[in-house]
């Protein structure tokens, strides 16, 4: 089995992109996964149905941090409609690794946060 800890995941986990607060946010959310203690706070700035900026903070495993980092990179500048169509497969594609059912939950928490934000 190939390691899921590819360089890209480790780099994003070590220095996540878009990590921090967003003072200009229009929406924000805090989600947690009580089973593993992961917490994510995500803030977005939405202008004219486009995500013009997005940031997150929180604590969690490397997979959840890398997922949030890659997802926020992807979401920036995208139309809300386009982001609504994202699903499990999109996240796996972004991460570029296969995940078992237990670790998939870690990877999907940032997506859940984003989708709740843009459905508000």
């Amino acid at each position: 089995m190939a390691s899921i800890y590819q360089e890209i995941i480790l780099q994003h986990a070590e220095s996540p992109h878009n990590f921090g607060r967003l003072p200009s946010s229009t929406n924000k959310i805090v989600l947690d996964n009580p089973l593993c203690g992961d917490v994510i706070q995500m803030e977005v700035e939405i202008r004219g149905k486009i995500v013009t900026d997005i940031k997150f903070t929180g604590k969690g495993c490397a997979i959840s941090k890398a997922s949030a980092s890659l997802l926020t990179d992807f979401a920036k500048g995208k139309k809300i409609d386009e982001l609504r169509a994202l699903d499990k497969t999109s996240i796996i594609k972004l991460l570029g690794v296969e995940l078992g059912p237990n670790r998939l939950k870690c990877a999907l928490l940032p997506l859940e946060a984003l989708q709740k934000l843009i459905h508000k």
Partner: peptide, 21 residues
């Protein structure tokens, strides 16, 4: 290092441990 990451890497070395609370 998050406990889940530790357990996952150990799994890659054929070691089974528990991670969580």
């Amino acid at each position: 290092v998050h406990a889940h990451d530790v357990a996952q890497i150990l799994n890659e070395d054929n070691i089974a441990v528990r991670a969580g609370h």
